[in-house]
Design a protein around this nucleic acid. Structure first.
Length: 110
DNA sequence: AAGGTGACAGTTT
DNA sequence: TAAACTGCCACCT
């Protein structure tokens, strides 16, 4: 059993609806550690091969930039998957990021 | 066992 | 205004 912290992150990420994106900080905050955003990113690093798969491509930094695309295989698949969900990505940045933002702290409570 | 790293974010200079 | 530093906590060497 991995650390529950990671499992929490995976669960939240899997709840992200298609066509929506969120930030590491939002997830970290939802878990109760708003300053532990790095841990969320690190959890994503271990998200490879998780069951069910974790849509890590829907998790971006606070500015909507595909910072972790380099960790995908191939890296360009991240942008491809996001575009397939209806998102517009230019220069590794999600357009209308604020409009597509999905805040777990709000959506989950709703 | 201890130190260093990291897919970030917020604050300060 | 932009750039740089610190904080955070688990994983890896």
């Amino acid at each position: 059993m991995k650390s529950d912290f990671f499992n929490q992150v995976y669960e939240v990420v899997r709840l992200i609806p298609a066509g929506r994106v969120t930030s590491y900080g939002a997830i970290a905050k939802c878990l109760g550690s708003p300053q532990s955003s790095r841990m969320v990113g690190y959890a994503m690093n271990a998200a490879h091969g998780q069951q069910p798969p974790v849509p890590a491509h829907r998790v971006l930094n606070r500015i909507g930039m595909l910072t972790g695309k380099h960790h995908f295989n191939p890296p360009e698949s991240m942008q491809t998957m996001l575009e397939a969900e209806g998102l517009t990505i230019i220069n590794d940045q999600v357009q209308n990021f604020k409009n597509q933002f999905w805040d777990p702290a709000i959506e989950l409570e709703f």
